[in-house]
Design a protein around this nucleic acid. Structure first.
Length: 495
RNA sequence: GGUCACGUGGCCGAGUGGCUAGGCAGUGGUCUGCAAAACCAUUUACAGCGGUUCGAAUCCGCUCGUGACCUCCA
């Protein structure tokens, strides 16, 4: 099963069998955020998608080194020579040190990632921590003849590179098309061609973020950091590189050119690109002003939101769609997801209470096969390019069996201990370990709820229906409900 | 304008040649002090037109519509 993982490779545009370079080790690099403002839900979607990639690879037994960078310099507001650094601009605006800006939004980013239950990367390098390496690779590219210096800046010569290599190999672009379509931006006089991109840029006098270099005071170009940091921690060629679809061109295309130019090797075996989150059919982005902040979504404090949605509901909502499809944000869809998630979360709670017992049932081959199939399908679905939507469908099938056992509609003896164990283990591991969906009510309150249930049971036995209804009401006001079953009484998260 | 995607039932969304996706909503039933939950059953599909094929939501062509990238973007 472990060898059956297939990944849609953006580079070849095909689904390919995943073969790590050096198993069981896997190198995974994902382009992280530029920390100049709060991350929005679109950003979150990408990192959540790769969180599942990371989790599933680990679940399969791979030793993953997950590297996700923090961009804290070099990302310019535009491509002009006087283009401001995003972080430097914000620092000036708020009268703070650039590193204060970086720290503030990096902290916020980590809080958000934690809220959505994404595992931290194994290495989280920052661009400013790798200035020396970026200068070194720039020197190398100059030595190798792929770059040129002009007025204290260094640019990559795309046209020259394209003569012997394929510049548009990842994004499917032809350099001729790019040339005819490139807009003439102001202030690009230093470049020999508008297609060329900066490796190192000269810092103007008012530019705050600056480092000494062989070409004078300046700062690294945006694309360079990922090349340097992925190479440093994962090697000149590594397994998987991911990022949002909008980074495919030019960012990832430039990364390939830089690596090939510096080492002669193609840097990445499998490229994965995640699709965009949309609002009313349009890409969520800060510039369009249609973005939601995670806190707004959770509290419901936004003009377009009817109510708040819990982090796990949102996580479930996003995983119901394949990462390569656009996902549209709407109240209706989120409400449906909230209910679906609660149902699955209740299953997580229920499954812990199940204890196998030899009861009066006899083996039911049909049910046994249904359970086995659904369990296997969890792996098949994830192996099919991390198809979380299909996996979730399987979990709902397993959930039905779990609930049937709990309510006594299905007998333990009908499925046998082995299949029961498989059912429980598969449900838990795919929910918690692979998809990262956890219960949201703190475990500490569970005993209190159970104590209240004891009172409820007693009142019921005494046919004290006034008190029975009262207890129901109390729990309901706390978003919990009581389940009266033939086999006993239990509680669940309200749906 | 160039390049590339996408268009599935009331809603959200899997599915890439024959086999029930799934969730939400709806309907009927079992259960129940009444309910709820749970389980069982069930209704509504593949943008349009043409082609390939024994057979297409799935492949090909055209039309219409939507979006992304081409400039910063996850």
């Amino acid at each position: 099963m472990i060898n059956d993982l297939k990944i849609h490779n953006s580079l070849t545009r095909k689904k390919e069998l995943f073969k790590p370079i050096n198993p069981p080790f896997v190198g995974l690099y994902v382009c992280g955020p530029t920390v100049y403002s709060d991350v929005h839900m679109g950003n979150v979607r990408t990192f959540m998608s790769f969180d599942v990639v990371n989790r599933y690879l680990k679940h399969l037994g791979y030793k993953v080194r997950y590297v996700r960078n923090i961009t804290d310099v070099g990302h310019l507001v535009n491509d002009a020579d006087d283009g401001e650094d995003k972080i430097g601009k914000k620092a000036k605006l708020e009268n703070l040190e650039p590193m204060e800006i970086v720290q503030r939004y990096a902290n916020g980013f980590h809080q958000v990632m934690d809220m959505f239950n994404t595992l931290p990367p194994d290495i989280e390098p920052s661009a400013t921590g790798h200035i020396v390496e970026q200068i070194e690779i720039t020197k190398k590219l100059l030595e190798n003849g792929w770059a040129y210096e002009k007025n204290g800046s260094v640019y990559f010569n795309v046209e020259k590179y394209n003569k012997s290599h394929e510049y548009g190999i990842l994004s499917g672009r032809k350099i001729e098309d790019l040339q005819s379509n490139t807009r003439a931006l102001d202030g690009q006089d230093d470049k020999e061609s508008p297609l060329d991109f900066a490796l190192w840029k000269k810092a103007s006098d008012e530019h705050i973020m600056r480092w000494p270099s062989p070409w004078g005071a300046g700062f690294p170009g945006w694309h360079l950091e990922c090349t340097v940091m992925s190479t440093k921690y994962l090697g000149e060629t590594f397994d998987i590189h991911g990022g949002g679809l909008d980074l495919k061109f030019p960012h990832h295309e430039c990364e390939i050119a830089q690596s090939v130019g510096a080492t002669g090797k193609s840097p990445v075996n499998y490229w994965i690109h995640t699709n965009m989150l949309t609002v009313n059919g349009q890409k969520m982005s800060k510039s369009l002003g249609n973005s939601f902040l995670p806190t707004e979504l959770v509290t419901g404090n936004h003009a377009m939101l009817d109510q708040g949605y819990s982090p796990m509901s949102v996580r479930f909502f996003m995983l119901q769609t394949h990462y390569s499809s656009t996902l549209d944000f709407s109240n209706e869809a989120l409400k449906a997801a909230q209910k679906g998630y609660r149902k699955l979360a209740n299953g997580l709670k229920t499954v812990k209470k199940l204890n196998f017992a030899q009861d009066e049932g006899s083996k039911n081959e049909q049910v046994i096969n249904e359970i086995k199939q659904a369990c296997d399908n969890c792996y098949r679905s994830m192996n099919d390019d991390f198809n979380t939507a299909k996996t979730i469908a399987q979990l709902f099938e397993l959930l039905k069996k779990i609930n049937s056992l709990h309510a006594g509609q299905l007998k333990y003896s009908e499925i046998g201990k082995e299949v029961f164990t498989k059912l429980v283990n598969t449900y838990q591991s795919f929910m918690v370990d692979v998809l990262g969906l956890k219960e949201e009510t703190p475990a500490e309150v569970h005993p209190i709820i159970e104590a209240l249930l004891d009172v409820y049971k007693k009142a019921k036995a005494e046919k004290n229906y006034a008190q029975v209804d009262e207890i129901r009401a109390v729990l309901k006001s706390n978003k919990l409900l009581i389940k009266d079953m033939k086999t006993g009484v239990d509680w669940a998260y309200e749906e």
